[in-house]
Amino acid sequence: MNDVLKVLIVDDEAMARARLRDLLGDIADEYPTRVVGMVANGAEALRMIEQEPVDLVLADIRMPVMDGVEFARKLAERPCPPGVIFTTAYDEYAVTAFDVEAVDYLVKPVRAGRLAAALARFRRSRTPETGGEGAGGEGRTHFSVTERGRILLVPVDEVRYLKAEMKYVTAFTSERDYVLDESLVQLEEEFGERFLRIHRNCLVARSAIVGVEREGEADGEPHWAVLLAGVAERLPISRRQWPTVKATLKL
């Protein structure tokens, strides 16, 4: 697969198609793509793919003539079909989407960071395993953060820890924090070699760990906490994760 992904956008709303095209442009420095077409339903998409093979399709689910699920099923019958990422305003189709082996399922309004994560997942799915992180050169080096009308690229290497709070994940660097539109489970799956889970709601950068410390003796709730370079806060290690942390750090 070439470095530049050939993408087809399928959505019955012109504004939705334009938004996806613009989002792809916003993250093009990290995930280069070329939009080869934008069509309004699955039937048109199949005809276009006959003329212009693509790597990836961003497809809505509820569309006239042929909806996204039927489109994905017909696409899967072809030899070497392109990947499909569903982009929809409805979350009730998630199980169906993965039944047809969709790469990802994005609920509108789609955010740049979430789209970037989906593209990263697609690249990993098409890159042969070569025995180590970064071997294929396809891993993300930055998080895409939407903030006050801007898209910021935050280097993964600068993130000290990731913490889930409510329905968002916050990435903390030594200087400030950033809100990511991604789940902690997804981030652990993608960056398991870089980040270590210390709690159900927290991953810490392995390279930033400088030690652990016993806390809570005075209030009767003793626990271990991790010490990170450049971070004043001591982050608690849950009892469940302590054996893994201890073994990982060879304590």
Rank of each mutant, 00 (worst) to 15 (best):
R150M: 12
L180P: 00
E193M: 05
G220K: 10
A116V: 08
R21E: 14
S183L: 06
Y93K: 12
A247P: 08
P243M: 10
E158R: 13
D26Q: 14
A117E: 09
D104I: 06
A43E: 15
T87W: 01
D55E: 09
Y161H: 14
R148Q: 13
Q186G: 15
D104G: 08
D99C: 05
T173K: 09
A218C: 07
F172C: 10
G230Q: 07
K108S: 10
E70V: 11
A135M: 11
R124W: 10
D177T: 09
P128M: 12
G25Q: 12
E182A: 09
R240S: 11
E158P: 03
A40K: 13
L115S: 01
A171M: 11
L106A: 07
R240D: 01
T96Q: 14
D22F: 05
V185P: 04
A164N: 05
K6D: 12
R206L: 12
L115W: 02
L228C: 02
R73D: 02
R123V: 00
S207L: 08
R34I: 06
E182M: 12
V36C: 13
V10N: 03
V69L: 15
I209A: 09
E221C: 13
W224S: 01
G68Y: 00
D99R: 11
L115T: 04
D26I: 10
Y31V: 02
K250V: 13
L196I: 05
V159L: 08
V4F: 04
G37T: 06
V35D: 01
P81Y: 07
V231L: 09
I27H: 03
V110G: 03
V212T: 15
C202W: 02
R140C: 09
A171V: 10
V36L: 13
A94D: 05
K250D: 14
D219I: 10
A43Q: 15
V103Y: 00
I27T: 06
V212Q: 07
A89G: 15
N201E: 09
L106V: 09
M15A: 15
L115H: 01
L20S: 08
D60M: 04
G37M: 07
G139E: 15
R111A: 08
V245P: 03
R150I: 01
E193L: 06
H199I: 10
L24I: 04
T127M: 10
K250P: 00
D177K: 14
E188F: 00
C80M: 13
E133N: 04
K246D: 12
D67N: 15
E189A: 15
S174L: 08
R150G: 05
A118D: 06
E13I: 13
I209S: 02
E190I: 08
L75I: 07
T146Q: 14
K6Y: 07
L115Y: 02
K163M: 12
P222K: 08
H199E: 07
P243I: 09
H223F: 08
T130G: 13
E175H: 14
L180E: 02
Y105Q: 09
V212H: 08
S174V: 12
E70F: 01
V210A: 10
Y168P: 06
K167F: 07
V145Y: 02
V39R: 03
E50F: 00
T244F: 12
A59Y: 00
A135E: 11
A232T: 11
I198D: 04
L180Q: 00
S174F: 01
E101Y: 12
A118N: 08
P222T: 08
A225L: 10
A89S: 13
E101G: 04
A72V: 05
V159Y: 07
T87A: 13
E77N: 11
